[in-house]
């Protein structure tokens, strides 16, 4: 029927997520790395027992150390927009799968000898980083779609502007109301509807919301006059707009909260690792 114009070469159109990047290239590499480490662990002739201080333990330890340092450089890579044929998606993909492989490599490195010392602290911190990262992968896979559904086609600024417009209408509409009723509306308008603690933000519960309270009060009154009906309608709209913004904030918080563990724990891990390495060489 028809013939397309010749395709342009070299356009980056690979439309796939960081998890399936290049047909799971980094997953395979990570799995192979783990298998190799496991096979080595089983066959390495280490006396008297597998230990971080044996030759095989040092090998695994060095690999794990290099991996951790490289993984932590993602933060720099992400922010340094240098030229070149790199893609942050490939980096993220490798970060995820190589990071997960540390569970196997570092555990084998310990030789299952854990205790209350600086070495185990480093191990524990690393597992914390990985656990928070696992949470991150989960929310990155699940929440974007919800984020997109919730925002419709509105940008953050449009949402805030829409709320401001409603507030202006409410302010005008509340003028003819009785003192008590208008006080409720004013109270709702005066309140910063987004001030909330971390928990409230993450669970999206705002029990002190005065808009909700004012709505409830209006709902109790069964004989609303035209002014009151208009205000009640506007309050409904305001509540809906607030709900959209709060839901957006909740989703963004869920997408971001793990980084508050992941990053500080990584910094702590790098510190603990330094102590671990220095102490091993000192007290050898």
């Amino acid at each position: 029927m028809a013939t397309l114009a010749p395709e342009k070469a070299g356009r980056p159109t690979d439309h796939e997520s960081f998890l399936v990047h290049k047909r799971f290239r980094w997953l395979w590499i990570a799995v192979l790395l783990c298998i190799a480490a496991g096979v080595g662990y089983a066959y390495a002739d280490v006396k008297p027992r597998p230990n971080g201080g044996s030759w095989y333990g040092y090998t695994l330890g060095t690999i794990a150390l290099l991996l951790i340092v490289w993984l932590s450089l993602l933060g720099v890579r992400k922010r340094a927009m240098t030229e070149g044929r790199w893609s942050l998606k490939a980096w993220t993909s490798a970060h995820v799968y190589l990071g997960l492989s540390l569970v196997v490599i570092a555990t084998l490195h310990t030789g299952f000898q854990l205790g209350w010392n600086i070495h185990t602290l480093a191990y524990a911190l690393m597992m914390l980083v990985i656990a928070s990262g696992l949470y991150g992968i989960t929310v990155y896979a699940k929440l974007p779609e919800k984020l997109s559904n919730n925002r419709g086609e509105m940008s953050k600024r449009q949402m805030v502007e829409s709320l401001a417009a409603l507030d202006r209408q409410l302010d005008a509409a509340a003028q003819p109301l009785a003192r008590e009723e208008s006080d409720r509306v004013i109270a709702a308008l005066e309140q910063d509807p987004f001030r909330a603690g971390v928990l409230a933000r993450l669970t999206n519960s705002y029990p002190g919301c005065r808009t909700a309270r004012a709505l409830k009060d209006f709902a109790r009154d069964h004989e609303l006059d035209a002014h009151e009906q208009r205000v009640a309608g506007l309050l409904h709209k305001r509540a809906a707009q607030l709900a959209q913004i709060r839901r957006q904030m909740q989703l963004r918080a869920l997408l971001d909260v793990w980084l508050y563990v992941h990053i500080p724990a990584t910094v702590a891990l790098l510190g603990a690792l330094t102590a671990h390495v220095v102490s091993v060489f000192f007290y050898w």
Binding site: R11, T13, H15, H21, M81, T92, P144
Partner: peptide, 18 residues
């Protein structure tokens, strides 16, 4: 390396198409 927006997307959401 080409368009920075695509290179800098960590999840592969940004794509350029002709």
């Amino acid at each position: 390396g080409g368009p920075a927006c695509v290179r800098a997307c960590p999840t592969g959401a940004a794509i350029r198409v002709g």
